[in-house]
Structures are given as structure tokens and as C-alpha cells.
């Protein structure tokens, strides 16, 4: 149950970058955060490491993404018995 904090470096081309943002926001496993300049914070909450890797590869493959850095990885040590329903994307994520 990996939860990863990502720093996404968007392409300099603004059209490409905004396409990438649209595509990523359509993925329910990705929560997009603040954008500073070309850098965007994001959290990827996936049910399995392999899914994580796939998503990672998918993000990197987007034309509007130059780099993808993983800055944080956490595992849920106590997985629930049943597949957990995805919590709604919260707009109350604390900002630092």
C-alpha cells in the first residue's frame, strides 16, 4: 500500500504542461498539489508497488512532464482486510 510524494517537473511548453496536468488529474490515484514555477507536488496512493511503478512510468511518459522525482514513500503496514474504498480527494490537505 505505497503512498508516494512526488515532485513533477513540467515541460517548459505551457500547453504540454497543462495537458499533462489534465491527464494526471483524471487519475483517481494521483492527488495533485501546489505548482511553483515548473514544479508540481503530487501524491500517488496506489494499492500495490507494481501499480505504483506503472503509474510512475505513465507519468514520466507524458509529453508535458520533464522529470519525476520521488521525495517520499510511505507504506501502510496494517492493510485493511478488504480493499479500501478510495477516500474522496480531499481539498483539506494541510498546506505546510
Amino acid at each position: 500500500m505505497p503512498v508516494a510524494g512526488l515532485t513533477i517537473t513540467l515541460a517548459a511548453d505551457e500547453a504540454l504542461a497543462s495537458n499533462a496536468i489534465t491527464e494526471m488529474s483524471s487519475q483517481h490515484e494521483i492527488v495533485l498539489g501546489r505548482v511553483d514555477g515548473r514544479y508540481m507536488a503530487a501524491v500517488m496512493d496506489t494499492p500495490s508497488p507494481s501499480r505504483s511503478r506503472d503509474l510512475h512510468g505513465w507519468i514520466e511518459s507524458l509529453a508535458g512532464v520533464d522529470y519525476l522525482d520521488v521525495v517520499y514513500v510511505g507504506f501502510d503496514p496494517d492493510p485493511p482486510d478488504a480493499p479500501a474504498p478510495q477516500p474522496p480527494i480531499s481539498s483539506t490537505l494541510p498546506s505546510p
Partner: peptide, 11 residues
């Protein structure tokens, strides 16, 4: 070869 998570959601 990594399969999808099993029904219990465990990797």
C-alpha cells in the same frame, strides 16, 4: 511478472 493485487488487495 508482478500480478495485480489479489482479491484482498495485498501485494
Amino acid at each position: 511478472p508482478t500480478p495485480e493485487p489479489d482479491t484482498k488487495g495485498n501485494p
